[in-house]
C-alpha cells in the first residue's frame, strides 16, 4: 500500500463506501490522515464501526479533480429528446388503435 505523503502532515482523504455486496461505491465523507494506511484505519472507524460498509476506498483529496460548473453539467437548452418524458405518444397510440379497430391491447389474443 502506498501512502507516500510527507510524514507528519495531516491532509484530508475522501472516503467512498459500499454499503452491501453489489452496490456502487458512494461518497461517505472524509478523514484527516498523514498517509493512506492511516486514512483507511480512520475511514473504517468513521464509516463502518457499526458495520455499515463492506468495502471502503480512500482517495487523497488533492488527487480529486472536480467539475461543478452547471453550464457544463446542466446546460440550459432543451434535452427532452434524451429523456423518457420527451416522448408523449398517447394521442398517436389512440389514433393507431382506432385505425386498427382495437380499443386496448389484447395481451391474451391468439394468432391473427
Amino acid at each position: 500500500m502506498t501512502g507516500a505523503a510527507q510524514a507528519g502532515v495531516l491532509e484530508p482523504w475522501e472516503v467512498f463506501r459500499r454499503e452491501k455486496d453489489g452496490d456502487p461505491m458512494k461518497h461517505g465523507g472524509s478523514v484527516m490522515a498523514p498517509d493512506s494506511v492511516l486514512a483507511l484505519h480512520y475511514a473504517r472507524e468513521m464509516y463502518s464501526r457499526r458495520q455499515e460498509s463492506v468495502h471502503l476506498w480512500v482517495v487523497r483529496r488533492t488527487d480529486i479533480h472536480d467539475l461543478a460548473d452547471l453550464d457544463l453539467l446542466q446546460p440550459p437548452l432543451d434535452r427532452s429528446f434524451k429523456k423518457p418524458g420527451g416522448y408523449v405518444m398517447r394521442d398517436k397510440l389512440a389514433a393507431a388503435r382506432e385505425q386498427s379497430g382495437e380499443s386496448k391491447p389484447r395481451a391474451n389474443k391468439g394468432a391473427r
Binding site: A96, E102, G110
Partner: peptide, 24 residues
Amino acid sequence: LGIYVPRIREIGLTLPDPDLALDP
C-alpha cells in the same frame, strides 16, 4: 413476445409468422 406482440398488433401491424400464437 409477451410484452411486444400485443403492442405491435394493437397499432395495426401484422407479424409474418402464421404459427405465432399464445397458448391460453
